[in-house]
Structures are given as C-alpha cells and as structure tokens.
Amino acid sequence: MSPFQVVDHTADIAVVIEGDNEEQLLREGTRVVFFLLTDSDPGRGRVQRTVKKRVKLEYRSFEELFIDFLNRLLSLADIYGLLPVGVAPKIKKNRAVITVRFIHAGPCQLTREIKAATHHNYSVERGPNGLLTKITFDV
C-alpha cells in the first residue's frame, strides 16, 4: 500500500500521508508534492541529472516544519520548475536543514497548479505505527 492516499475534498485536494518517523514523513511529503504536480511518481521515468539545494527552516513544532517545507517545495517548483525527487533531512531542535534533490521539470511535465499546503483540519497524529497526517492542498 502506498504511504499516501488522495482523499475527497470538494474544491481542493486532500492527502493522507503516513511515515514511520518524522524523516520518513518528510520523504513521503516530497513524493506527494511530485505526484500532485506531475500526476506521476518520482521513481518512474528516465534517469535525469539532479540538482541539490539546502532548505533551512526554523520551527516550533514538527507540524509547522512539515507544512512549511511542503510550501517551500511548491514555491521552488513555481519559480524554477524544480521537482523534488529525494530528501535528506537533518532535524535538530527548532531547526531543520533538509537537502533536497531536484530535477528540472520537462515540457508539459507539470500538470497541476497547487497554490499551497494549508493548515485546514491539519494535525500530525503519532501512534504505535508511526505518524499519520492529512493535508489539504489549495488547487
């Protein structure tokens, strides 16, 4: 089963994402961004040269970090056409440095415009099997 699932939301798109821990949730969140923008999975398609960027974020809670990170990925896609294909997060208290590998979006590869990841009905639940969250993206 995929660690993320698109669920119904009238005007926008809601996604349920699971991860064993915070790092994995960030990885899965990255896949969700790729999937929503391109309607495909980053693991598929031809091998492409990647570029690395470091995303530095300060935060008060993991919930805040996660959504800020997704929004940063969306703005990088919008400005530079960069699509995230992998992440290496380093999370310290109140500060995260996340190294993200990107590919440049090919012609017509971007198929959907996402305005933002929102805080609507948003929380990160922690259970015995890890973390679970539902995020609504404004389309």
């Binding site: 698109v6 009238t10 798109i13």
Partner: peptide
C-alpha cells in the same frame, strides 16, 4: 460552485 470533488 463545485458539486463534485476533483477526484470524483
């Protein structure tokens, strides 16, 4: 006003 979600 939307009636169906995008997914539906």
């Amino acid at each position: 006003g939307r009636l169906l979600s995008r997914r539906k």
